[in-house]
Structure formats: structure tokens, C-alpha cells
């Protein structure tokens, strides 16, 4: 891959108490992509983001942001980054417009009222620009945090759980916003608990658990490689046990013997479905219904994470 906007090499973090939050992480983020970092609570997602942004000091490793070393040339690196934190941390007594202007100045940018107005309009905050933050709802505060992160025109935007605790409508609005930002060339890294969100938005997905980056893959490729297909037969007559003649398909009996589940590899040359259906006919096992399912990103994620727990 040429010219990544973010390059993380061998970054680790062990806290003073001895807890290892990150095992050596290597990651490259492509310019202009939407990258979803998935992981259960305490997996190390926020630690990794915080290290890149300069909030947490790494124990080892190197980070480059658009060619700037994040430790030696931290100013150059940080100017490129916008961060929307997970917590709704705001100065309650500040007005919306003031806090956004504050963020812009903090990142070394000269005032630009036209740009700030555009950001606030994009986030439906323009009408609320003179409101104090304490007067806003949680969803509006989340928008303000995004406006603050965008105020200095970053090239790389971190969204740490951007839709946690927001309603469906706002979540959809955020998704639209993320797509608009990408169209403008902003690279986006998001962490989320909502796998549906990653499935909807991400180009690539990284899965992290127990501080270890388990997998980084194109979303479509990951779904293809790790996704499973399932076929469920609703039997005409309940079955007490699975006959020995069906052992080779490794079936599971569910719902008090009323349903048979068969998990198969859709990419395999032989899925085993025709032979199974023939064998069922031979054994005079009838069924009333047949359904097939494709595993979601969530299923893949759960499988990967459970694999680390085993």
C-alpha cells in the first residue's frame, strides 16, 4: 500500500499497574477510507485511538500521521487529526459557536466564520449556535463534539463510538455525514459497538480483542471468507435423535426435535445440500419448510472474539 495516511508500527501500551492494554499493533489506514475498529469493551480500541491522538503515551512503537512522526513532530501530526470522544465531555456554560471557535483556534487555525458556519449548518446546529451547551440534548451535544473535531479541517477523523446512546434518526444522520465527509476526502476511523454500523459504512474492518489486533480485512472480503451459510429444515414430525446415516453432515437438532440445522461453506465446490436432501428422502424424513441464512458481520465478530476467550 502506498502513502497511508496513518501508519502504526509495533505500538504497545502497558499501564503502570502492569495491565497490558495493547499488544504490539501494526496497522495502516488508507487515505480516504472508512475504517471500522470493532472490539468488545476493554479490547483496547480507545487506548489505540488515544495513543494516536496524543492523549495516552505509548510504551513502545512508532506512529506516522500523513508523514509526520506523532512523537517527534507531534504538532504536524495532531494538526491532521480530529477526535470525537466517546464521552459527552463539554464545557456546559459555553455557547455552541464559542466552543467550536475555541477548538479551531486550539489547533492553530485562524478564525474562519464562513467555514465554521458551514460545519454548523451541516450538523443542523446553526440555529442553536448561541445556545449554551447545558441547554442541548445528548444528541445535540454529540453533534457539537463532531463540529469541534471538524472545526480545524482535519484529514483524519476519529469517531469513538459516535452513535452510542443516540436515537435511530440521529444515527442515520451521522451515517450520512460520515459518507459526506469521505466524499470530501476525509479519512475516517470509527469504533463502534453497533456492528450494523460497520457493516453499513466501513470499507475495511479491524477486529481487536484483549489488546490484540486479530484481523484487518476488506469488509466484503471478510464477509466472504469468514461468513457461513446455514440451512434450517422444519421437520414434518419431531425427531428424538439424529439418525446415524446423517452423521457426515454434522447436523444439529433444535426446538425439541422440530428443526434441523445444517451449516455449510457456500464457496465450497460441494455444499452437501443436494446429497443431504436426497438422504432425507431415502430415510423418509419429511419437512414442511426450508430456510437459509447468511451470517452477518456481527456473527463473524462474535466468532472471532469468542475464539480469543476460548
Amino acid at each position: 500500500m502506498t502513502d497511508p495516511i496513518l501508519s502504526v508500527e509495533g505500538v504497545t501500551k502497558t499501564y503502570k499497574g502492569g495491565v497490558t492494554a495493547l499488544q504490539p499493533v501494526d496497522l495502516e489506514i488508507r487515505r480516504g477510507e472508512i475504517f471500522a475498529l470493532l472490539g468488545p469493551n476493554g479490547a483496547g480500541k480507545t487506548t489505540l485511538i488515544s495513543i494516536v491522538c496524543g492523549i495516552v503515551t505509548p510504551s513502545a512503537g512508532a506512529i506516522r500521521v500523513d508523514g509526520h512522526d506523532a512523537l517527534r513532530d507531534y504538532k504536524g501530526a495532531r494538526r491532521k487529526i480530529g477526535l470525537v470522544p466517546q464521552e459527552l465531555s463539554v464545557d456546559m456554560f459555553e455557547r455552541v459557536i464559542d466552543t467550536v471557535n475555541f477548538s479551531r483556534g486550539l489547533f492553530g487555525r485562524a478564525p474562519n466564520p464562513a467555514y465554521v458556519e458551514q460545519v454548523l449548518r451541516d450538523l443542523s446546529l446553526w440555529d442553536k449556535r448561541h445556545a449554551k451547551l447545558m441547554e442541548l440534548s445528548g444528541g445535540m451535544k454529540r453533534r457539537v463534539l463532531i463540529a469541534k473535531a471538524l472545526s480545524h479541517e482535519p484529514d483524519l477523523l476519529f469517531l469513538d463510538e459516535p452513535t452510542a446512546g443516540v436515537d435511530v434518526e440521529l444515527r442515520r444522520d451521522m451515517w450520512k455525514l460520515v459518507h459526506r465527509l469521505r466524499e470530501r476526502g476525509v479519512t475516517i476511523i470509527l469504533t463502534t459497538h453497533y456492528i450494523e454500523e460497520a457493516e453499513e459504512m466501513a470499507d475495511r474492518v479491524g477486529v481487536i480483542a484483549k489488546g490484540k489486533l486479530l484481523l484487518v480485512e476488506e469488509k466484503a472480503e471478510m464477509m466472504k471468507k469468514l461468513g457461513k451459510r446455514e440451512m434450517v429444515l422444519t421437520l414434518a414430525e419431531p425427531m428424538a435423535t439424529i439418525p446415524a446415516e446423517l452423521a457426515e453432515w454434522n447436523l444439529t437438532l433444535e426446538d425439541e426435535g422440530k428443526r434441523l440445522r445444517y451449516i455449510f461453506d457456500a464457496r465450497a465446490e460441494r455444499t452437501g445440500i443436494p446429497s443431504l436432501l436426497r438422504k432425507l428422502g431415502d430415510l423418509d424424513i419429511g419437512f414442511n419448510d426450508l430456510e437459509t441464512y447468511k451470517s452477518s458481520l456481527e456473527d463473524i465478530f462474535v466468532d472471532l472474539v469468542e475464539g480469543t476467550r476460548a
Binding site: G54, R78, R79, I81, P85, L106
Partner: peptide
């Protein structure tokens, strides 16, 4: 909790 902004600023 707004310290994140000061720490992550250039």
C-alpha cells in the same frame, strides 16, 4: 473530561 482536547491539540 474536556482535557482530551488540550492533550490532543498541537
Amino acid at each position: 473530561g474536556t482535557m482530551y482536547e488540550i492533550l490532543s491539540a498541537p
